[in-house]
Design a protein around this nucleic acid. Structure first.
Lengths: 340, 340
DNA sequence: GCGCTTTACTAAAGCGCATTAATGAGAAGC
DNA sequence: GCTTCTCATTAATGCGCTTTAGTAAAGCGC
């Protein structure tokens, strides 16, 4: 059933209704500099637009102006709260610049990712944001080179593409520093998988903070664990079952889920948080951090800020400006709650 | 600095390179039925496309074909995990139909919402999905009437717009039924704010399940609470502090956060889950439900399914087909864990 | 060889807009 | 009264594509 479409109002209709040419309408709409339009005419045109309910056709405009006003955002998994924050940040900044975000989830499937990328390029995106849920090296599909691209929360091995990533070192430093400031000197560090950037960077920050405080890092206090509550539980048990002065009085956990497990281990032993053992987490997962008892002091990854910064970098690149920093790092803010 | 753009390859370039007309290239690309194109020619054209790295221009295509292939999705808050699931479902289904999703967050700000809607209409979306994070009545901006619109997880008071919502009644029924099947006869119901659809529907289901089991619902067992862990804790205390046979042996909680609070109240009293008190939650918030001890049996809201169904309804509407159901309800699946 | 159909292809119009070059009207200058 | 200039406006072109209305050539039956 071809439901005879009512044919949308076009600029020409507006022009006729206002008794001017289509060009004049276009000038009014785009605030053409160099074209002087008396207020009387402008009002007449605006009135016509209003009366007819005219809406510019973004596609036609893009075609004629050779600007799409689109940015593409490819993210691994839409569902992850992390990804959502990146989207939020990017979206807000993009709309501010009157750009639109074309969002696609790759769902970690290369085929789907390639398809998404194709679609974006066919929509003539003026730039591409490529975001991951966890900080790591990625291989970006070649097609992405056709357009300015910024990596968010990841980087390419070759270092060819600009990126914006969290400052893991400073994150580890801040967490440790917070515990040192609270008087702790034996600080256990339940780290993530030691080969990933987060684990490497945070450990570096952890050790730096200790050295600055005149403490020689004790490698036996750093143990890796699976990034789950169980993993945190197991690792915490190992640290807490040491005897006497050997036992840490504070734990810095690789993420909030691990901190959740650590809480269990601590409580099981009749120890109190933060009196006997202080805990700092990482990730600031609201549902965990804010609802654990006591509430968890943790560091947040700057997802939203990475989203906005990514768009800013893209805007610069798309405008042909050189970036002053090829690799931007953003701080991980410390969120004070009650576990230290 | 106008970095002289290299001018993209167009269909005309492909045509020239393959020694055919632009029309023929178009026919090949669109698999025109009725046009017969010998394989030899088709291959020549495909080769040319490949060699030149041609990509169709989606905007131009939309303009000429008068189809945008866009659907718009307006959601309250991108950040909420709920919204992410709707996006995921809608996105997947849309891509399957070779449609694209233009996603915007209204962030509960009417001005931003209106702006987003304008942008969508200017991009000539062929349909609109309007989604909320919690099931309720909404007032949709008038402009949405310009295009087929489906409400997701919400409805309009007038009942004019088609919608897809969770079946709260069946949800409440299933939860209660599960507890009845486990042998419980005094089931406390810590409900959400009694005026919202979720609370009303679930209570109806709760009472129906009881009656079916030959139990007369005891209104004193139903108490509303704030939708937080604290709210759940307070309500649970009230129920659990009743004496003897008056005390419920099972709790059905309005959401997982409230269940989390209820857990605390139960454990505080030295009662065990599920032996002394069984608990069923709602929402299936992974971070809570899967990590509570014992893991929480809960119902999931069908966000992803609502997303896909919404797109399906939109597709039907956009094709001019009548919907067989104006108001689609989707079941809330029960997720068995260990709290019953 | 004739008319007819089928096959393989194309010219041209136009989608709704931005943009360039141009034009007519009036004001200013002499 | 004439030119020159500014102001307000527009005709016309084309962005890259789809689609309609064709046409030239080949194939076929008789």
């Amino acid at each position: 059933m071809a439901t005879n479409k009512p044919r949308r109002v076009t600029m020409k209709d507006v022009a006729r209704h206002a008794g001017v040419s289509q060009t004049t309408v276009s000038f009014v709409l785009n605030g053409r500099p160099g074209a002087t339009i008396p207020d009387e005419t402008r009002q007449r045109i605006l009135a016509a637009i209003d009366e007819l309910g005219y809406r510019p056709n973004a596609g036609a405009r893009a075609l004629a102006a050779k600007r799409s006003d689109w940015y593409g955002l490819i993210t691994e998994i839409v569902t992850a709260p992390f990804a959502a924050d990146v989207i939020k940040g990017a979206q807000n900044r993009a709309w501010r610049d009157r750009k639109f975000l074309l969002i696609a989830a790759s769902e970690s499937d290369p085929a789907q990712e390639a398809a998404a990328l194709d679609q974006m390029l066919e929509h003539r995106v003026e730039g591409l944001l490529y975001a991951t849920t966890w900080h790591r090296a990625v291989t970006v599909p070649k097609a992405a080179r056709e357009v300015p691209t910024v990596l968010v929360n990841c980087y390419d091995e070759e270092g060819e593409l600009p990126c914006v990533v969290p400052d893991e070192v400073t994150g580890g430093y801040c967490a440790t520093r917070r515990l040192l400031d609270a008087g702790h000197t034996r600080i256990g560090f339940i780290n993530l998988d030691p080969v990933i950037p987060a684990a490497i960077g945070r450990r570096e920050g952890y050790e730096r903070a200790l050295r600055e405080a005149g403490i020689t890092p004790d490698p036996s206090l750093v143990i890796p664990g699976y990034a789950t509550a169980d993993g945190g539980y197991t690792a915490a048990c190992e640290l807490l079952d040491r005897t006497g002065a050997d036992r840490p009085t504070a734990l810095f956990c690789g993420n909030d889920r691990m901190a959740m497990g650590a809480y269990d281990a601590i409580k099981e032993r009749g120890l109190r948080i933060p009196h006997d053992v202080a805990v700092v987490g990482f990730d600031n997962q609201e549902l965990i951090a804010a609802y654990l008892r006591p509430k968890l002091t943790t560091l947040a990854l700057p997802f939203e800020a990475m989203g906005t910064t990514g768009v800013d970098m893209l805007a610069a690149l798309a405008a042909g400006q050189p970036l002053d920093t090829h690799r931007v790092t953003l701080d991980c803010p410390l969120l004070e709650r009650s576990s230290v």
